[in-house]
Amino acid sequence: MAKKQEQSNGQNESESYSDWMSRLPAHKQTSTLYDLVIPGSHDSMSYDLDVNSSIVEPDWVKKYSYLPCVRAITRKWARTQESTMGQQLDAGARYFDLRIARKENDPDPTRLYFYHGLLTCTDVETVLRSINHWAEQHPKEIIILALSHFKGFGSDEKKLHQHLVSFIKNLFSTKLVPKPMGYEDAPTLQKCWHQKQNVIVSYDYAEATKQPEIWYKIDYSYGDTMDPGKVEEKLTMDLKVAPHSYFYVCGLNLTLPEDPGAIKYILRWKNMASLVRRSLPELLKWIKQPDVSTKLNIVASDLVTEDNVIPTIVRLNTD
């Protein structure tokens, strides 16, 4: 299955990136993870959006959830990934942008889903179990899970966070990399390999990060525009002040306006993927510029398994 996936993306078996971290040069194995250039996916679970769910966002479209055509359009424009989580991992993605929500009136009080415009078909616990299985099969590949947003938690917020964090700790167990006390304690590949730890969980909820296994929120810089040139301008400015003592995400993703201004793109283009494919070559050319590439840490992209996205990012570690 993995071999077929690689060939379908124009890669042969020798070019597989399923275990790229384990093949990095010796000096990169002792560098902090903050000093590596790591490919990641933006809205990682958006391939799994449920066209039958209510619209979660944007707010101005929510009232049209009862219309199947509006949900179908929302799915086309919220779907920023086309490959499954396993395929993204096999292709070499190591950072995952996971936005979580509770389904309104769900009979299971602790069941959660991912979302981007719509809720996903698959629940959070099922997906995390599949990631845990992959991590067991690839012990030298460090996976970074960034959990955020937590829509619809309401008055059950504390209870739901406690349940989710407990599930994460029990599931990943000794594979969890504890957050460092300071930069001098920052993890390296060799440290993680020695401790047999390869899962980092970043969590955007302050109470959860009091636990040693749960890392703080990771800053995510993005252009907030559909214009790739403006994305580059914004990211260039942000990289000038980016921290070097913690993870930092440079998001290459385009952003659809959250108001009726989005309609002009919807009328002109088939879906978000068509626009992303047009913009990716320019954005990948931009990250290879010396004054940019030397400042990068995590680089997140839409359609992360597209030809040349992950290879371009990974090669920045050795160029």
Rank of each mutant, 00 (worst) to 15 (best):
E258H: 04
I266R: 01
C250W: 04
P260F: 10
Y246A: 15
V249F: 01
A242F: 05
D259R: 02
K240Y: 11
A262F: 03
P243V: 13
A242H: 06
Y246L: 12
K264Q: 12
R268F: 00
D238S: 15
Y265Q: 07
L239H: 10
D238T: 13
N271K: 02
L267N: 05
L267W: 05
M237I: 13
Y246K: 15
I263K: 04
Y246C: 15
P243L: 15
K234Q: 13
I263A: 07
K234D: 12
K240E: 15
W269E: 09
L252R: 03
L267G: 00
G251V: 05
R268Q: 02
L256M: 10
Y248G: 11
A262L: 05
L252T: 08
L256K: 02
I266F: 04
E258R: 03
L239Q: 13
M237H: 14
D259G: 09
N271D: 12
P243Y: 14
L254W: 02
N253Q: 08
V249P: 01
K264G: 08
L252W: 10
D259P: 07
D259H: 06
T255F: 08
T255R: 03
P260T: 15
L256A: 07
L267T: 06
T255E: 08
D259E: 08
H244R: 15
N253E: 11
H244G: 15
L254G: 06
K264S: 12
E258W: 02
C250G: 08
C250M: 10
H244Q: 14
C250D: 12
K264C: 09
G251T: 06
L256W: 02
I263E: 01
W269L: 04
D238W: 10
L254P: 01
A262V: 07
G251N: 09
N271V: 01
I263F: 05
V249R: 02
K240S: 13
S245R: 09
V249S: 04
D259F: 03
K240C: 12
K234W: 10
I263Q: 03
G251P: 05
P257A: 03
